[in-house]
Design a protein around this nucleic acid. Structure first.
Lengths: 204, 204
DNA sequence: TAGATTGTTAATCGATTAACAATC
DNA sequence: TAGATTGTTAATCGATTAACAATC
């Protein structure tokens, strides 16, 4: 139950909402209030959050405590180190994405094949953009949690192989095709286009 | 059953895969082959596609026919007219997104508040970027299927109101907050960050 | 004909909800 | 105390699968 895709999705949604509440200075929230804003039932919210055992009868959940618990569960109670492969339009948008940075996802390096972009500093990236040729040696001395793939289809597999050999355990892929990864590596594909297809379906 | 979120998601996935097969010149595919590539059961595929009544016993599905049927179902058997609001990094990436254009999603106009970007031609956009002040009058004379929101949080609601008044029926929102829309308008939010949270959860 | 594969449906599985005793 | 709201679980609901007759 705690591994179903649907559950993981709800947990992410709770976190987004709880952070919003926390940032607005709200101190407590009931399962009823939380459910209302995300089209879920209060029962569902209680079943999901019950295992934290921090709800109080007659009161609800303490927003700060709940945020902390969700952060632990999701694994963002510490800085998560990202590297970016491919500093095109999508890559640059990600480097500038403040909410990503605020949540603790920090880009520690970015790599591109294009020499024109090499050496630039973009968005929240502290280091200048490196050449893709430096990737393998970088991974030898710098542990990385997640690699973000924002490159073209052709080089997807070869870059992925370098990442896997370099010990990267999570890959967040923006390309419309999927690289093969060993079982222990988590691959999360971002399906921008599928989301638009779903919208189109609902319109018809 | 044909409206469940899960079903809509699978239909989008079938379409992506079938197009890939078609583009590679593959003529037929069985439910078994189709299922294998997307972690579904052959039963599920047959149940989903059965209603088209174009599978043939002992043969499978004709790829070209199935693609056409899915296009009709999703509503992309014709050009879908998009407008873009907000021509920043995300907006520009979308204007350059070839697979979106190839699927029949065409940007007929783009609007931005920043005068520096006004008048530029970017990616597949044929028209120069317009000022956001022209939006309302544009909608009066140009019917649009879907508006793409790639703007900051602050202006989300006011822009959405203009779109709704202008008769836009679908909104594809990239902002991390959600505008309120009347019931008949379909709002599809793209949750980039939630997808990264899910990846992080799976890593822990 | 034999082999492959469909569409359908009853059975199974898993996820969601309703109800409620417990408790702040 | 009375009111609010929790966590738990049995009941319900909905989605997936297995099985198979039909058929190309």
């Amino acid at each position: 139950m705690f591994c179903s895709e649907l559950y993981v999705k709800r947990i992410s949604k709770y976190y987004r909402r709880i952070r919003q509440l926390r940032d607005n200075g709200v101190q407590r929230v009931s399962s009823e209030e939380l459910a209302k804003h995300m089209k879920l039932s209060p029962s569902q919210v209680r079943t999901d959050l019950g295992k934290f055992c921090l709800g109080q009868s007659g009161y609800g959940y303490n927003v700060v405590e709940l945020a902390r618990e969700l952060e632990k569960l999701i694994g963002i109670d510490k800085i998560v180190k990202l590297i970016l492969i491919g500093v095109g339009k999508v890559g640059q948008a990600l480097l500038n994405y403040s909410s990503l940075h605020d949540t603790g996802f920090h880009f520690v390096a970015a790599f591109d094949i294009n020499p024109i972009i090499k050496g630039k500093r973009i968005g929240y990236l502290k280091e200048p953009v490196k050449s893709i040729r430096e990737l393998a040696s970088f991974l030898e001395t710098n542990p990385v949690d997640i690699a973000v793939l924002a490159i073209d289809q052709e080089s997807i597999q070869s870059v992925t192989d370098i990442l896997v050999r370099g010990g990267v355990k999570g890959i967040w892929n923006f390309a419309p095709c999927y690289p093969l990864v060993p079982e222990e590596v988590v691959l999360e594909n971002v399906h921008i286009q599928e989301s638009l297809l779903q919208l189109s379906y609902k319109l018809t």
